[in-house]
Design a protein around this nucleic acid. Structure first.
Length: 287
DNA sequence: AAACCGTGGTT
DNA sequence: TAACCAAGGTT
């Protein structure tokens, strides 16, 4: 029973993270989950605390223009998430009386919330019994249960079934286990150099039992190079937009990157995303 | 459903 | 140093 072993280990070894504090609240947990989508814990914590001090409720965020959310997002990356979080706050305010919903389908209907985030909020904020599957969970299951070094590409049904099969019956133990297996993947059963010597389930690990076979399945698609990419150029334009409260002119933008065609392409995609708004004299953040 | 979307620390 | 990787979501 890896769930009881992992839960005991987690109770004794969990990192002291803000969203694990007593009474952190559903809104704080929702904000943290948005920020943690592909951004490391250590970079999230300071932005999260600023954010919640300034906007302690969904309604307080919904009351300001999206530009303020994008600015406060700072350099967390993927600024569309700031826009989506603001949109979710508006939806929560208008559709749910300002209360973060606890129902999976209600959560999934919010902008920027997918399977992982909906389940994380329902489980961690409300204690509901749902399998929660993130990249850490998938890696631990691949190793400890399936005996392979890496998870195969994500498959919603398979992943939820695999986690569901391990989930304790009681909602409280289940919520703890969802967090515990993620934590194990984050700090012990890491992607590159797993710390098997200190793993609380090493004696139950199928990968270790098979003497750590090399992964032979489908590799996940490699991330495209960032340097010189459209993503880099978008990032430069966004930093410029965030840096001022007046509009950014074409001349300003031209100084950011030498390839004019790529600059145009990046700017057009930001406009399409609603992150840059054409104005008389240039571009602004969405107000 | 594969590709796209930021940023910065680690190896 | 270049590649890898990070509590995903959307199209």
């Amino acid at each position: 029973m890896i769930s009881s072993a992992l839960n005991s280990w987690f109770v004794a070894n969990a990192r002291d993270l803000p969203w694990r504090r007593d009474g952190f609240g559903a809104w704080g947990i929702l904000v943290s989950e948005f920020m943690l989508q592909q951004t490391p814990v250590n970079r999230v914590i300071p932005r999260l605390e600023e954010w919640l001090t300034r906007w302690p409720t969904p309604a307080s965020l919904a009351a300001v223009p999206p530009s303020e959310a994008v600015r406060a997002w700072s350099s967390l990356g993927y600024p569309r998430r700031a826009l989506w979080l603001h949109a979710a706050a508006v939806q929560i305010t208008q559709l749910h009386d300002g209360v973060v919903p606890s129902d999976l389908n209600d959560l999934l209907a919010l902008t920027g919330i997918g399977d992982y985030t909906a389940r994380a909020v329902a489980a961690f904020a409300y204690g509901h019994r749902h399998p929660v599957v993130d990249t850490n969970t998938r890696r631990v299951i691949a190793r400890a249960i399936a005996g392979v070094g890496e998870p195969s590409p994500p498959s919603r049904g398979r992943d939820l079934d695999a986690m569901g099969a391990l989930l304790p019956q009681s909602a409280q133990e289940a919520a703890l286990f969802n967090a515990a297996i993620m934590e194990l993947g984050a700090v012990v059963c890491t992607s590159r150099r797993p710390h098997c010597a200190v793993c609380p389930i090493r004696d139950d690990c199928a990968w270790r039992a098979a003497d750590y076979p090399e992964y032979t399945g489908t590799r996940k698609t490699v991330q495209k190079k960032f340097a010189g990419s459209d993503r880099q150029v978008r990032g430069l334009i966004m930093a410029e937009l965030r840096s001022t409260h007046r509009s950014v002119t074409d001349a300003d933008i031209a100084t950011l990157w030498s390839d004019a065609a790529q600059l145009r392409r990046a700017l057009a995609s930001l406009v399409a995303d609603g992150l840059a708004i054409p104005a008389d004299d240039g571009y602004t953040l969405p107000t």
